[in-house]
Computed example of a mutant assay.
Amino acid sequence: MAQINPYIHFNGNAEEAFEFYKSVFGGEFAMLSRFKDMAASGFPVAEEETEKIMHVALPIGNNSVLMGSDTPSVMGKHSEQETRSKIAVAPASREEADHLFNGLSAGGQVEMPMADSPWGAYFGMFRDKYGIEWMINYDLQQK
Rank of each mutant, 00 (worst) to 15 (best):
N62E: 14
F18H: 06
F10V: 12
I53S: 04
A90P: 00
P44A: 14
S64P: 01
S73I: 11
M125L: 10
Y7T: 08
G76Y: 01
A57Y: 09
E19S: 01
S105V: 02
H78F: 15
P59R: 00
G12S: 07
S23G: 12
E51I: 04
G131I: 11
E82V: 09
P6K: 14
H9E: 15
F18A: 02
S33P: 00
L58W: 05
A97N: 08
T83Y: 13
F35A: 02
E19V: 05
A92K: 13
D70M: 04
V89C: 11
G27P: 08
V56M: 08
A88H: 14
G26W: 11
A57N: 11
D139V: 03
M54E: 06
F35P: 00
G76V: 03
L66C: 03
D139K: 01
Y130E: 06
K143F: 01
F10A: 10
A40N: 09
G107A: 05
G131F: 05
P113M: 08
A97K: 05
I136S: 02
I8N: 10
E19G: 02
G27L: 09
E96Y: 09
F20V: 02
T50E: 12
D37C: 03
E47A: 14
D70V: 04
A57F: 05
D128V: 02
I136M: 02
M135E: 10
S23L: 03
F10D: 08
N11V: 12
F101T: 02
H9I: 13
G42N: 12
M114P: 11
W119A: 08
R84K: 15
G76M: 04
A121T: 15
V45R: 08
P6H: 13
K143G: 10
N63P: 00
E47K: 12
N13M: 09
A30C: 02
N62M: 06
G131T: 09
E95C: 10
N5A: 05
E49L: 10
I60F: 07
G131Y: 05
E111C: 04
M135Y: 03
Y7N: 14
I4S: 12
L58K: 04
M31C: 04
S93T: 15
P113C: 03
E47H: 07
V74L: 13
E96M: 04
E28P: 02
S93A: 11
E82Q: 15
E15V: 03
D139F: 00
G61P: 00
R127N: 10
K52V: 06
T83W: 13
N13C: 11
S73Q: 05
A17V: 03
I53M: 05
N13H: 11
